Simulated assay, not measured.
Amino acid sequence: MRNISDIIEKYLKSILHESPEGAVEIQRNDLADKFSCVPSQINYVISTRFTLEKGYLVESKRGGGGYVRIRKIELPGPTSLHAYLYQTIGNEIGQTAAEGLIYQLEEARFLSSREAALMRAAVSREVLMVKLPYRDQIRAQLMKAMLIALLG
């Protein structure tokens, strides 16, 4: 069985997908009531699974009537994707940012799940056993080379 975080994430992604504006506004307490959990569980899901690296912009307002607004950031079309990727990767990229970019590309169906898994394995710090900042520089070069080969 899936855990409550997975269920909340799936629910938020489904309502986000159905939203014509590409954004949803929720109240933590209402969502916590819906899933019979504490509001901090909602905070955990939003802060770990809806990050900028994964392609989401999150805004929140605390206090009475407070809300959380989640917006999906769309990747550019195929024609400007290369420029976006080169700008995003730059000369060095950390593991979290690299994994987030791979996640975005997989979600947008630019990469298959197999290709994404292979890329994550190739750029992990366990494989790139070099000291910083060289590790992040090597990771950036690997990412660029793999994406050129995969996306043409």
Rank of each mutant, 00 (worst) to 15 (best):
G65Y: 11
V38N: 15
E9S: 10
K61D: 02
V38G: 04
S40M: 10
Y11K: 09
G66A: 10
L75C: 03
G65E: 06
Y84C: 04
R69F: 03
A32V: 00
E106P: 01
A32D: 01
A23L: 11
R109Q: 10
Q27E: 13
E99Q: 10
G65D: 05
I26K: 13
I15Q: 11
R71A: 09
Q104L: 05
Q104N: 05
A83Q: 13
Y86T: 10
E59T: 03
N29F: 11
S47D: 14
G66D: 06
L16C: 07
I15T: 08
N29L: 12
E74S: 13
N91H: 11
I73D: 12
S80T: 15
S40Y: 02
V68I: 15
E59S: 12
N43K: 05
N43P: 00
R28F: 07
Y86G: 09
F35R: 03
S14F: 04
T79N: 11
A32Q: 06
T79L: 12
E59R: 09
E9T: 04
T96W: 07
N43Y: 01
V24D: 07
F50L: 10
I42L: 00
L111K: 03
D30N: 14
I73G: 04
Y44G: 01
G94M: 06
R71P: 01
A23T: 06
G64C: 03
Q27G: 13
H17D: 09
G55H: 07
S14L: 08
E92F: 08
E99Y: 14
E21V: 09
T88Y: 15
T48V: 06
S14Y: 02
S19E: 08
K61A: 11
V45K: 01
L75T: 02
L111M: 06
Y44K: 13
L31T: 07
E92N: 07
K10D: 14
E53V: 00
Y67A: 08
G55S: 07
S14T: 06
G90F: 05
R49V: 03
R69K: 15
G94L: 07
L85W: 09
Q41D: 02
